[in-house]
Design a binder for these strands. Structure first.
Lengths: 160, 160
DNA sequence: TATTGTTATACTCTATAACTATA
DNA sequence: TATAGTTATAGAGTATAACAATA
């Protein structure tokens, strides 16, 4: 397919309401994946506002909840968060009484991470809010399509 | 499905190499869409390094090239870029001689945007680099699956 | 009074270098 | 010498308020 060539001369008169043509962006993966990610995160923000949790905080709570006792660098590394940035993340979760660091017996440099009871309780409510977002996506795409999408995205995440 | 409950007691001894279990994140849309978007943008960064174009700059050049003569607020608005931030974007593209602002005759507040000849030339090379990324995604997902993915992402972007 | 482009600014995310304490 | 956590910091990206010129 030949690339669409732009006209060199600006069009002098265009109706104000004429929509901007983004068709050549909508046809590649990179553009809609960015817009879709932003839309999903904005929807997340609205649903999680009562819980005061960002997507990164939610994923951290889930990772600790499913992997209690693991050290900071394991959890942060699995989530793709740089170690220095994950320190502030844990500081905040600990300040809010949702997670705690305890010195590892085996390696006294490391912290073993775990959720507090309050963290477990909040995570239960958060998982319910997350399930509602998935249900909304089900309604937008269809349940089977949502699962297909997740499979594609997980494969795409390994593009590197 | 009952939510997976985390064990309260940290596990004392774990092999160093045991992978962190992120299964409950991989099963929802919000997490893999973020990881996939980052992977696609990292791949973009490598492919576009010789052209010195970010994804936002590329999408701006495409939008101007396909819609010459439109004003800043139309192009920036269609791309979801805040007006103050789009000023710096245009400053840089103009500084590099890729695009230009000319005062609109109809409305002397507005600038009509257009690519320069150098901008057209760079955009041709950029579209070729973009086509290579799509081909790489084709190889990772399959050509038909890539089109299905794009359709789902465009629908998801309207979730708001 | 509203709109276009602009400036200034702030806040979040992310990335890197260098330190400390342990191993 | 290497690793876990930390501090400080810098750079993107994104958001809002307020201004001048024009409608």
């Amino acid at each position: 397919m030949a690339p669409k060539l732009a006209r060199v001369e600006p069009v002098a008169e265009l109706e104000d309401s004429a929509p901007v043509d983004l068709a050549s962006l909508a046809g590649i993966v990179g553009y809609p994946i960015r817009r879709a990610q932003m839309a999903v995160f904005e929807d997340f923000g609205r649903r999680f506002a009562p819980l005061d949790l960002t997507p990164a905080q939610y994923s951290t709570l889930v990772a600790i909840g499913d992997n209690p006792g693991r050290k900071q660098s394991d959890i942060g590394g699995a989530l793709g968060i740089q170690r220095p940035n994950f320190v502030a993340m844990m500081d905040e979760l600990e300040r809010r009484g949702l997670a705690e660091r305890t010195r590892s017996g085996a390696d006294r440099r490391a912290y073993a991470l775990a959720l507090t009871l309050a963290g477990e309780a909040l995570l239960l409510r958060a998982r319910a809010a997350q399930a509602e977002q998935e249900a909304a996506i089900d309604r937008a795409l269809g349940s089977n399509e949502r699962r297909v999408l997740i499979g594609m995205l997980n494969r795409l995440a390994k593009l590197t």
